[in-house]
Design a protein around this nucleic acid. Structure first.
Lengths: 138, 138
DNA sequence: CACCGTTGTAATCATTGTAGTTACAACCTG
DNA sequence: CAGGTTGTAACTACAATGATTACAACGGTG
């Protein structure tokens, strides 16, 4: 069983920490809270930057949010860290036999349902923003 | 990006084929339609059998469904092939730092939302049964 | 300007899940 | 018994992940 990468949960952690924290959020500081290697944090921060969610100050260090907390949904973060591409949550077996009625038609039928299921999941993520999560960090 | 195993799509293919086909569905015949190695089929058939979806005749060969087509949902298949365990679609990073307010609280908050998202996906799968798919196999 | 902490990134490694393959025992029926 | 089939174990190849080391580039501060 292969899971969706922990890049997602780490990214949410990073954004929450930047939001909550008053002090300078350097990669090393965040790595201490997440409890992983600083390079992992820098890589994910790079993705968040590329997605336009955070601003990072090279050299001096530290990061800040580019959007309001309630304007960043879990779906934004999920897309930012590229855990799953567009319609690719489910894997489909390669090249079923076109000589067979099932082999010939199953791909279109099943891919549609897979896409629907994936969308249902993503829409649920879109309903939650970081602000809502942050209220729970006492 | 790691996807949900193609065991799922293969399993749906297998069930559809057994449903449609009048002839004896041996592992080798199914493997020909799916276009993969017969051992892959046998492994997945074993999971479907364990889940009570099909009956397999050892020695003589062939398989048959144990439920009506409209009583087998995509969720049943998805669970049968163990692509993802209960609340484990999303991976959560290990042991965030309990000294930090975010590290201490993020797990509970985020795991809840992850579970909700996973459930939304699974509920969408539960809305479709093999019978509905089979109508598209002309 | 030089120092020093930080960011950005490449390279490497161990681990894990997957898909495929070979091999072979167990099974059933003619 | 013979032949085709199922049920597994063992092995390989491959890809994604997470961790780690190393080092260049950056930018304030003294």
């Amino acid at each position: 069983m292969k899971q969706i990468s922990s890049r997602f949960s780490i990214a949410v952690h990073i954004l929450s920490l930047i939001a909550i924290s008053s002090k300078d959020c350097t990669g090393d500081f965040i790595a201490g809270s997440v409890n992983t290697n600083p390079v992992i944090i820098r890589r994910i921060m790079g993705m968040l930057k590329k997605a336009g969610l955070v601003d990072i100050r090279p050299g001096v260090g530290g990061a800040s949010l580019l959007k309001n907390l309630d304007q960043i949904t879990l779906l934004d973060v999920y897309r930012a860290v590229e855990v799953i591409e567009d319609g690719q949550l489910f894997n489909f077996h390669d090249e079923p036999n076109p000589q067979c009625p099932v082999g010939r038609n199953i791909e279109a039928a099943l891919r549609f349902e897979m896409q629907e299921a994936q969308s249902a999941m993503e829409q649920r993520l879109a309903q939650v923003n970081i602000s809502q999560l942050a209220t729970q960090f006492v």
